[in-house]
């Protein structure tokens, strides 16, 4: 589990023009600089927005990552819901803070 580095990578892609350029030009090369698990690398590259959410990536970071792959707002929301169905409750980070990481999505439906 290296949620911190997953989030740091997304943060830097969002905010740092040089990192963003490296992301555009050679993502594999950029990924080497971060301490990431295979599952995290898979989720980042695909991208599996739902899995990234379940891994605990903060929405304030994730909502900017999704559009880089052409994922529109409502598809982004749907991908997170699907992620919970596929991979179970959020495992770490802010959204796992209470209730054992249960999402409010189910209660909402």
């Amino acid at each position: 589990m290296s949620l911190y580095y997953v989030q740091k990578l997304i943060y830097q892609i969002n905010r740092d023009e040089n990192i963003r350029r490296r992301f555009d030009e050679n993502f594999n090369d950029l990924l080497v600089d971060y301490e990431l698990s295979d599952e995290e690398i898979h989720a980042l590259k695909k991208p599996d927005i739902g899995l990234l959410y379940v891994l605990g990536v903060n929405g304030q970071l994730l909502m900017h990552y999704a559009p880089l792959f052409g994922i529109e707002w409502f598809d982004y929301l749907a991908a997170m819901k699907q992620g919970i169905e596929e991979h179970g409750p959020v495992r770490a980070g802010l959204y796992a803070m209470t209730g054992g990481g249960k999402s409010f999505a189910k209660e909402n439906e």
Partner: peptide, 10 residues
Amino acid sequence: HWPCTPDSGK
């Protein structure tokens, strides 16, 4: 509010 999560809008 629950911004940029599956509960966005709630």
